[in-house]
């Protein structure tokens, strides 16, 4: 049981690195979908499968594995962008930053008091690494699609933490959170579509009319 949790956590980290090094937006969306499914499976393989856990895991897999990728691909098709042309931080540098983030997460975890009833010792550091890596993606990439993906990576980190450390959050809260994330990505998708229609590109870097 524990081994499966660890495998999923490793998948989460690997997909994050893969994302940090990819430039084609279509494959970035696909990588994010894989990560979403892995996040969803985390609850299933963790043991103690109840109806509540199963329902939430299913919702996560459907949303993050199918709905979000579909929504984002559609937004991408409407635009003429296929690559992240010149990110603020290059791909090799991004990977190095990823390594530093991972190291820092393990270090930070060793500083905090041990959390009780954790499914695996890797949960907290991996979740933390995903959170920071997501934040990094948002500031280091220029296209709106990649920024949304960064938000999703961050969200996956928070979800991982929630499921690994606080398994007993009421289902209502969990579903409310999922619902919010869904609406967030939905709204962002529409926003990308609209930005694209008005500016004819989805480089949020070029959104610089407002200053001061």
């Amino acid at each position: 049981m524990n081994a499966w949790t660890d495998i999923m956590l490793v998948v989460l980290i690997l997909t994050t690195f893969w994302l940090l090094g990819s430039s084609r937006l279509a494959s970035c969306i696909r990588i994010c979908a894989i990560q979403g499914v892995a996040t969803g499976l985390l609850g299933v393989v963790g043991g103690g499968l109840s109806i509540r856990v199963a329902a939430i895991s299913l919702a996560v897999i459907v949303l993050k594995g199918l709905a979000f990728p579909w929504l984002l691909s559609r937004a991408l098709r409407e635009s003429n962008t296929s690559h992240e042309v010149q990110p603020f931080v290059g791909y090799v540098a991004s990977l190095l930053v990823g390594v530093v983030i991972l190291g820092l997460s393990f270090w930070a975890d060793s500083c905090l008091p041990a959390l009780s009833h954790v499914a695996s010792r890797l949960v907290a550091p991996v979740a933390f690494a995903l959170l920071i890596a997501g934040l990094f993606l948002i500031v280091a990439r220029k296209t709106a699609v990649n920024q949304v993906l960064g938000y999703l990576v961050m969200e996956n980190g928070i979800y991982t933490f929630g499921f690994g450390v606080v398994r007993e959050i009421p289902a209502l809260v969990e579903l409310g959170v999922l619902m919010d994330v869904f609406v967030a990505v939905f709204v962002m998708g529409i926003a990308i579509y609209r930005i694209n229609r008005t500016f004819d590109h989805i480089d949020s870097d070029q959104l610089t009319l407002l200053k001061g």
Binding site: A191, T198, F199, L207, L209, L210
Partner: peptide, 14 residues
């Protein structure tokens, strides 16, 4: 939906 309003909205949202 002016360009400036969209920009402000994207910033706010993110």
């Amino acid at each position: 939906a002016t360009p400036q309003a969209l920009e402000a909205m994207w910033k706010y949202l993110l």
